[in-house]
Nucleic acid binder design. Structure first.
Lengths: 352, 352
DNA sequence: ACCCTTATTCTCTATTTGAGCATAATTGAA
DNA sequence: TTCAATTATGCTCAAATAGAGAATAAGGGT
């Protein structure tokens, strides 16, 4: 059961989403990019990446660590493989040079203290403004995303396809009575890509999956993109994958402490969780949750106060790994967002 | 920030873990294997796999579907990418032919009706006998795994390393007061591999990460492997990844219905969940859970009875995707396994 | 002393779990 | 026909968890 095929000319790129949280802002490291993208300045930026050296790197993760440490002065703590992307059509035409490119995305977490002046630490939400709901659902969704998606839904001639699109849009963005699910960050980005609502789609000549009514190459017909910084190649897709994965992970593994100093206040911890989850949390209940779950333990020490009563310093409690099968900060199911209710796109269904 | 490296000679294999559940037994499809493994018959079997044809396959997943459908008469429903493996040292020496092999693992779910006579549908737990706890913790753990791991722990000269090993073993296998976590199937397999307790380790000449006291090549010193069917290359590792991932997934996405006919009884549903999760569930509470969560809805129809009172037929309720952010069967945290308590390996800690 | 800010403790209620008892509807055997 | 076995389904009760917020504590500044 082996099919013989020419696998020559495959290039393996290792891409790192390197995350840190500073002052409540989740940030990722980006680097300049001198590729052949024809698009504007916004895509002249990339995730740090390098090629796998098959003769040198014993494992993929070691390869990643090698050149991250060669090229930055970061020391990566937690590293996790995310996904391998290899769509032929997800590269800009200028980049395709006869060889097929795979990119393996990695998620790496570093502590705030590692955020130096060197690289560009971009606010993660500058790439996905619709993902930050700490202050409630962003107006961007009601003002831009929802109408644009509605147009995309209506843009299909086939009524079954319209239902399908409406369903996907509702579930991804929590419209029409559906609830917002922070972990679906990739679904949301992919949907916008398919609908031609992000710059990369235009660059790749994506025509929203049989986007009837629009000419494939009729560039004047492209809808206005939703705001949000682009990246070269498929790097914003990798970034969305990382966001969704990390949001899921913090719920059942104590990875959040990789982003914090050894000792921290509960509010610091809460802010880091909130910044990644993209939702605001109830302070007293959050405290009860992490304390009761045995995730943290108090050191006797106190902070030098910054504003109010001094807070106790806590540290991660390693023993929790013994006690619970899935120790994490178990985010609440967010309260129903009053804002976007009702005006949704309505429903149908398609799995995947 | 691109490092130039020779990426020639990389081969991309697409591997499928194709899962079905029949009569309460979770099964995966395997195929014969004529590779250069020197080991015994047990490794002459493989996951179905094929090579990516970079010129032909537009996406990785399409490539996978192409040759699965070419080579079997299965129609894959749900397909999900698992992980990309590329350790140089995880292939048997005979297989390394100058080129580096990456394997991208996929998980695919098919319905019971697809299980034909064609392939070999192996009981998933025949590869991982320690993972099936439906009848409580298997005696295999207390009888074989625990003592063998204890020897491995003691096999290190360095006391810090011993603590580290003990910690990992405890958490992975739920020993020493730690709780069993079904999703750590990969951790468990990797631990056994490192400890030289599975056949593949011997084949690959792994010396349990600085296994002092054993000669690297002194084959007579190898510990007896833990029972369980082997596979060629790193396929058992992919299989373990799939098991852990699927166990996690059924908790928050309704993928379980991909394995069931369109209409089913609640007991059928429960048996499928149990078979994958590897634990037994409380019947009445399971019923309450899935009904109350809105995951299923009754059709008026009844089964033709098989033994007792006829059961109502249910079907998956698509609308649940609108109502809950993470619809799944939310497994309970298993009751404390009375059997393995107390006799554990004791504790220390190491993240990851 | 009083106000502002943040921390921390508690209460109260509603919901979700865990466990098990009781009842219902079949089939097959006595 | 009646009973035993078997599976389905409904219901209860207590414990644990989650959501919301009041009340109190401990700092700084004016």
């Amino acid at each position: 059961m082996r099919s013989e095929a020419s696998t020559e000319g495959v290039t393996v790129g290792l891409n790192a989403v390197i995350v840190a949280v500073t002052e409540g802002v989740p940030r990722i490291l980006s680097v300049p990019w001198q590729g052949a993208d024809e698009d504007s300045d916004s895509t002249r930026e990339a995730l740090p990446f390098g090629l796998l050296d098959p003769m040198r790197d014993r494992t993929l993760e070691l390869g990643l660590r090698r050149w991250v440490e060669e090229q930055t002065d970061l020391s990566l703590g937690y590293v996790e493989q995310l996904y391998t992307f290899g769509d032929r059509d997800r590269e800009p035409p200028g980049e395709r040079q006869g060889r097929r490119a795979l990119s393996i995305g990695y998620l790496a977490l570093v502590k705030e203290s590692q955020v130096g002046g060197g690289g560009r630490w971009r606010d993660w939400y500058s790439f996905f403004p619709w993902e930050d709901r700490r202050e409630g659902p962003p107006t961007l969704i009601a003002n831009s995303v929802q109408p644009a998606l509605a147009r995309w839904v209506e843009g299909s001639a086939d009524s079954g396809e319209r239902r399908n699109r409406r369903e996907r849009a509702d579930i991804a963005f929590g419209l029409g009575g559906a609830r917002w699910d922070g972990e679906r960050a990739l679904d949301r980005y992919e949907l916008l890509y398919e609908a031609g609502l992000v710059g990369e789609a235009r660059r790749d000549r994506v025509v929203g999956q049989a986007q009837e009514g629009l000419e494939a190459e009729g560039q004047s017909e492209w809808p206005n993109p939703i705001p949000g910084r682009s990246l070269c190649l498929d790097h914003r897709r990798i970034l969305a994958t990382a966001l969704g994965r990390l949001r899921g992970k913090i719920r059942y593994r104590p990875v959040i402490f990789e982003l914090l100093p050894r000792e921290f206040t509960l509010l610091q911890l809460q802010r880091v969780v909130e910044s990644l989850a993209g939702v605001g949390l109830h302070k007293q209940n959050f405290r009860r949750l992490v304390a009761h779950a045995g995730l943290v333990e108090g050191t006797g020490k106190q902070t030098v106060h910054t504003g109010g009563r001094p807070a106790e310093l806590f540290r991660f409690r390693r023993e929790v790994l013994h006690e619970r099968p899935a120790p994490g900060v178990g985010l609440p199911e967010m309260p129903e967002p009053a804002a976007t209710r009702g005006g949704g796109l309505d429903s149908a269904y398609a799995l995947h």
